[in-house]
Write a protein that binds this DNA or RNA. Structure first.
Length: 266
DNA sequence: CATACGTCCTGCCAGC
DNA sequence: TGCTGGCAGGACGTAT
């Protein structure tokens, strides 16, 4: 593998260290951990790619149907002649080269995979206890659970009928059971649909994901809730949009009155 | 210690 | 038609 860094800010460790760990090594396999693409190389080394908001990994054979790269940031030239381009308009993503020990440490900072067999309702319930965070923030925290982003957090909470502002530890066992089920269902469906292309997301061949047509509340402010017909509400939580149905997902403040801040933590 | 907010960056779109 | 403000899939550093 040969590497050219066009945008230095995509490689926080610096180009020389990045290249030194990777160049000349063969790729063994490609996997995923949370929101990271994990490219495993010889010698236990790892090229970790986080796409941020607008990042894409594009595989380019020399052909007419190559996907379009508008903002190339890093070129990877593989031995077989395949060119892989990391492309990123906003450059919130990053690429990192890690040795075996550093990858092990990084892996440990990430929470469990929600689709893994080990992620049971009991496991989730145990992790929720003791956290006063709003459940939407809890779902987005990669240390608590890996791989859940804003779209799927909102969709899962709608499906589970849990308000985004509910303190994590305030969920009843029944609500935890519903959220666990909803989260796994949403993620499986989204993977089946090859993701959600709102604007920028593309797979390695330049293709779009179709889960956008299956969104129930995300980006649908004012639309009728598909379950009860009440207009979907948008609010801002931690500087990010939260969408929910005010009727299906009752406010934690108790009743319908916003402003009555009676957060009851049992 | 844990949670909350501003910031990084560019492009697009609605509204004026 | 052209400009402006708001908004965007993420995550980290710092303040509280």
């Amino acid at each position: 593998m040969e590497i050219t860094v066009l945008r230095e800010d995509l490689v926080p460790q610096g180009t020389p260290a990045f290249r030194a760990l990777l160049e000349g090594r063969r790729i063994r396999r490609v996997a995923r951990r949370g929101k990271n693409v994990v490219i495993r190389l010889e010698g236990g080394r790892v090229l970790l790619v986080n796409l941020g908001m607008t990042g894409r990994l594009l595989a380019c054979h020399p052909s007419a149907s190559d996907p379009v790269s508008s903002h190339p940031g890093v070129h990877l030239l593989l031995d077989g002649g395949l060119r892989v381009i990391y492309d990123d308009v906003r450059r919130f993503g990053c690429l990192e080269a890690l040795g075996p020990a550093r990858w092990r440490d990084r892996n440990r900072t990430l929470g469990p995979e929600p689709l893994s067999a080990g992620f049971t309702v009991e496991n989730m319930a145990a992790r929720l206890t003791g956290s006063t965070s709003p459940i939407r923030s809890w779902l987005l925290d990669q240390r608590r659970i890996a791989g859940v982003g804003n779209i799927y957090a909102n969709e899962a909470l709608w499906r589970a009928r849990v308000h985004p502002l509910r303190p994590a530890s305030s969920l009843t066992p029944e609500e935890v059971r519903r959220l666990h089920r909803a989260l796994r269902g949403i993620l499986r469906a989204a993977i089946r649909a090859r993701g959600t292309t709102l604007r920028d997301y593309r797979d390695a061949t330049g293709g779009e994901g179709s889960f956008g047509t299956l969104l129930r509340v995300y980006g649908r402010e004012g639309d009728p809730c598909p379950r009860c017909g009440a207009p979907v509400v948008r609010t801002v939580l931690s500087n990010r949009s939260a969408f929910f149905c005010p009727r299906c997902q009752p406010s934690p403040a108790g009743g319908a009155a916003p402003g009555a801040a009676a957060f009851g933590v049992p």
